[in-house]
Amino acid sequence: MVSDRPATSPHSAGNPPDLGANRSLISPLQVWDLTVAYQRTPVLWDVAFQVEPASLVAVVGPNGAGKSTLLRAILNLIPRASGKIQIFGDEFSAQRRRVGYVPQRESVDWDFPVSVLDVVTMGLYREIGWLWPVRKQHRSRAMEALNQVGIADLAHRQISHLSGGQQQRTFLARALAQNADLYLMDEPLAAVDAATELAIIQQLRAMKQQGKTCVVIHHDLQTVPEYFDSVLLLNMRVVASGPVAEVFTPENLQKTYGGRLTLLDEVSSAMRRQEKLL
């Protein structure tokens, strides 16, 4: 049980709790003592975990558990109050190219005037570089990524004409085009059709075969054991983390979803009240 351990400080050189047994390779993602606050109200407390290379990791927890916040903090999109994060044993900014991000589908306006291929090419913009236009080689790589998720025939379609599942596949293809080693995905399987779910899962497994690691926010508890190797149970803090077989237990789920985390809740609302008074 991760949360029962004393918090390890980045200075004390202790490894964060491992999500798997394989330590032979550098972990793609290590998190120590991560605390994140919005407007000084903490949403993540003392989160610590470590991800094994070439694994599929589910991040599971109720609404408001801070799942998206965790991904955003790892990606440096929001400031963190404390804690340390390492990507392949290095700072995120140094390893940025090796990290692919699949944001929530609802986070963008799908009426934007671009085609599916345009969106997927965005995954290559960093590589193309400032001032350079998108060239043929990039478009063919984007097509390849579309092929992998099975919607190459939609390449020139307007994104406003896509179904939810197709939108999700487009986002996945954009991340694939980048050819990263660690992927952070925010609910890629939320509200997609069965065919899309299958296609995405097959893609994730293929990525794992290639030695890539995926950290996936997942909402469907039933499919966790089938789809993922390890799991991070999150509810403002890490309730449990590790291989699915070990930590995905009814008791841990009960702790994550059922019993309200009274103390954290109370402190948070106390902070909020204080915030309003100030």
Partner: peptide
Amino acid sequence: KELALLCFDQAYAESQG
């Protein structure tokens, strides 16, 4: 292309650096 990316998906643009 950078402005287009910013307008379409700011979070992704930031994640790309």
